Simulated assay, not measured.
Amino acid sequence: MHTMWKGSISFGLVHIPIKLFAATEDKDIKMRTLHKECHTPIKYEKVCPSCEKEIKPDDLVKGYEYEPGKFVILEKEELDALAQEKSKSVEIIDFIDLKEVDPIYFNKSYFIGPNDNGEKAYMLLKKAMEDTGKIGLAKIMIRSKQQLAAVRVYKNALVLETIHYPDEVRKVENVPGIPENIELDQKEVNTAVQLIEQLTTEFEPEKYTDDYRTALMDLIQHKITGDEIKVSKEVPETNVVDLMEALQASIDQTKTKTKQTQPKKEKKAPIRKKKATG
């Protein structure tokens, strides 16, 4: 696993040397954009529209547009100097309960591994967090951006989750069309609750798969081998208009599926009495 960041975790006066590893990976199927006529991959070139010439990487600088068409130029050395001070430390600011952080704040996950001579302090922090049930709220510099992060226990290790700052999460009040005062029928509510209870199960991540990605890879393989491609028929939509009818139909469907998945009980053979011999 490739190390993507080295530094330390600090809380109070304690410093633990660590390494970060990407905990997730993008499984999207990447496609190239081709010229329709000759199927040649298209090149994307950086061209200055004013000078009308291609620009090399060394000719690029960073600029902030403070007014339309007006920029403040920020040199690489200036940006590096701002990031340098905190670039190698995961600074735990507070310890909090995980349930206090809404999932909307979570962004990306990284496994935390101990660096040289950091094994004991690493396990000490993990054990203390397990015993208290707390997570660490921290700050970290990743790719020239200061991130808010949660450090928590994951199985037998520590994991760091970058989380959005509050001003990066848009206000739900700005979503148009959310109803406020709608009177609900209690019978419909009870039926909806019953349906949720019937569909409730333990979380087993292994049983969830990306059906679209699987179908896309099958399509690609068929095209490579020249096999005939079969497109499945669309499933007709059921025209259920009444909400109560839809809820009840869903409950009935769930009951049927549950019965089908339950193991059948074996029929016991009848016990025959032996005839007395005299």
Rank of each mutant, 00 (worst) to 15 (best):
Y44A: 06
Y44M: 09
E45Q: 02
E45K: 06
E45I: 03
E45P: 00
E45W: 00
K46G: 08
K46H: 11
K46M: 11
V47G: 06
V47M: 12
V47T: 09
C48W: 11
C48Y: 09
C48Q: 05
C48H: 03
C48F: 05
C48R: 02
P49A: 04
P49F: 01
P49S: 01
C51R: 01
C51H: 07
C51I: 11
E52N: 11
E52Y: 04
E52Q: 10
E52A: 06
E52K: 12
K53L: 05
K53V: 02
K53C: 08
K53H: 05
K53E: 07
E54I: 09
E54H: 02
I55H: 02
I55N: 00
I55T: 07
I55C: 04
I55D: 00
I55W: 03
K56V: 01
P57Q: 09
P57G: 03
P57H: 08
P57I: 04
P57W: 02
P57A: 07
D58M: 05
D58N: 13
D58P: 04
D59A: 10
D59Y: 00
D59N: 03
D59T: 02
L60I: 15
L60R: 02
V61C: 02
V61P: 00
V61M: 08
V61H: 09
K62M: 12
K62Q: 15
G63P: 04
G63T: 10
G63V: 11
G63D: 06
G63F: 02
Y64R: 04
Y64A: 08
Y64G: 02
Y64F: 15
Y64W: 14
Y64L: 11
Y64N: 09
Y64T: 07
Y64Q: 06
E65K: 00
E65S: 01
E65N: 00
E65L: 05
E65W: 01
Y66W: 09
Y66K: 04
Y66V: 02
Y66R: 03
Y66D: 11
E67N: 15
E67S: 15
E67C: 15
E67A: 15
E67V: 14
E67K: 15
P68G: 12
P68H: 11
P68S: 03
P68Q: 08
P68R: 09
G69W: 06
G69L: 03
G69K: 06
K70A: 14
K70R: 13
K70W: 05
F71Y: 14
F71R: 03
F71C: 06
V72R: 08
I73Q: 07
I73G: 10
I73C: 08
L74S: 01
L74M: 08
L74N: 00
E75A: 10
E75M: 08
E75K: 02
K76T: 11
K76E: 15
K76W: 02
E77K: 06
E77S: 12
E78D: 15
E78L: 09
E78C: 13
E78T: 10
L79R: 05
L79G: 06
L79A: 12
L79D: 14
D80Q: 15
D80W: 13
D80S: 13
D80V: 12
D80M: 12
D80Y: 15
D80T: 13
A81C: 11
A81K: 12
A81R: 12
A81S: 07
A81M: 09
A81Q: 10
L82W: 01
L82H: 14
L82F: 13
A83F: 11
A83Y: 10
A83H: 14
A83I: 14
Q84V: 11
Q84K: 14
Q84E: 15
